[in-house]
Design a protein around this nucleic acid. Structure first.
Lengths: 211, 211
DNA sequence: GTCTATAATTAGATAGAC
DNA sequence: GTCTATCTAATTATAGAC
């Protein structure tokens, strides 16, 4: 038995660092999250980050890769369970799942909103690597709904930012919401009610008028 | 004639600094905007900021004060022209005006989204000084619509973040939208169409079902 | 694989000349 | 009111011991 040699500290330091980096990058933005603070939160020393990652920028990319991989697989898993279901129901359930994921993982849209404010190499990479595939999926969904007459032919750029903005911003801004309204947006009842409203927004507000 | 003595550089350096600070604070966040970069954009030297403002934090507050003052006065001016108009029309026009302001001044929601991600003294100040009065106005508008039966009795926290998220996020994320979709969200036709959709979202999607 | 020590750079703020 | 020069602290990254 070759035996698993006991490590000095953690079984998976890389994992721990990625979790800490996600927390701080998403809350404080790239510049605001110092590698020292990330290391401290991960319970390691700062130079260790440079052993596991080539630099701050690569740590950021690894963090984002990891986050989007979880998002993609979560959406994919939900979609897989809907073979044979009609397009309108699929759209409703996928939008609902998107809102629920955004509530459970506000870091995703915190990072997206942060990086999307300004043209940069990080934004270029983010869009081409992770955002565009998701956007293409959304477009395909809008197209199916429009073809079947369940959605007015509204340009996808409007729909995409309407739905993502309406669905995610309350979770992105949860600390403000809590202080401003006294409501905890992460409470399950709030998440469910919010998801219903976003689904209605897509399916009812943009549906062609019908008598 | 006492004569206006010629200044060394600008007629209103404070104004120039505030404009530069707004640009950089909103795009790069508080930490990402260095006082050196702000000074350079304003065409002055970095130590001059400390002559006009007590420190970086106070420069930030002065910048935000200035921005919200413009927002408040813009909304107030629009509202003043609507005496005697019915509540539903007022709501539609005010939401439309909000979307147009968000397009013309994406810095407001860029700063709001940035600071709202994390509890902090800056967020506390922002909420109590500037956001709460606006939220109270929004609540009052929702209440009038609900009383007259034009809006379902949905908790205001949902409505507020639905409308602001749907209406502002595409402008906050304009560089991403441009790269992702090829569409310039600041184009007047896009702004107008987006405003229409957000108005529909509030008035139609959340309206009580009626036969 | 993780640490201590430290280099090189950049940050915000101050002193003092003009 | 604005500048140059500079202080102190914090930043990312590297060197090298264990």
């Amino acid at each position: 038995m070759p035996a698993l040699a006991p490590r000095q500290v953690s079984v998976d330091t890389r994992r721990t660092i990625l979790d800490a980096a996600l927390e701080l990058f998403s809350e404080r933005s790239f510049d605001g999250a110092s590698t020292r603070a990330i290391a401290e939160l991960a319970g390691v020393t700062q130079p260790l980050l440079n052993y596991h990652f080539a630099g701050k920028e690569e740590l950021w990319r690894a963090t984002v890769d990891d986050l989007f991989e979880r998002f993609r697989s979560s959406m994919q898993a939900r979609f897989s369970g809907l073979r044979g279901v009609d397009d309108v129901t699929i759209a409703k359930l996928m939008v609902r799942h998107f809102v629920e994921f955004s509530a459970a993982n506000p870091q995703l849209h915190r990072i997206l909103m942060q990086e999307s404010k300004r043209a940069s190499s990080r934004l270029d990479w983010l869009v081409e690597t992770h955002v565009r595939p998701l956007y293409e999926n959304a477009i395909a969904m809008f197209d199916r709904l429009a073809t079947s007459g369940d959605l007015a032919p509204i340009p996808p750029a409007h729909l995409y930012y309407l739905v993502t903005g309406a669905g995610a911003s309350v979770f992105v801004m949860a600390p403000e919401c809590q202080r401003l309204t006294g409501v905890d947006p992460f409470a399950p009842e709030f998440v469910a009610a919010h998801a219903d409203l976003v689904v209605d927004l897509l399916i009812r507000a943009t549906t062609k008028e019908s008598p």
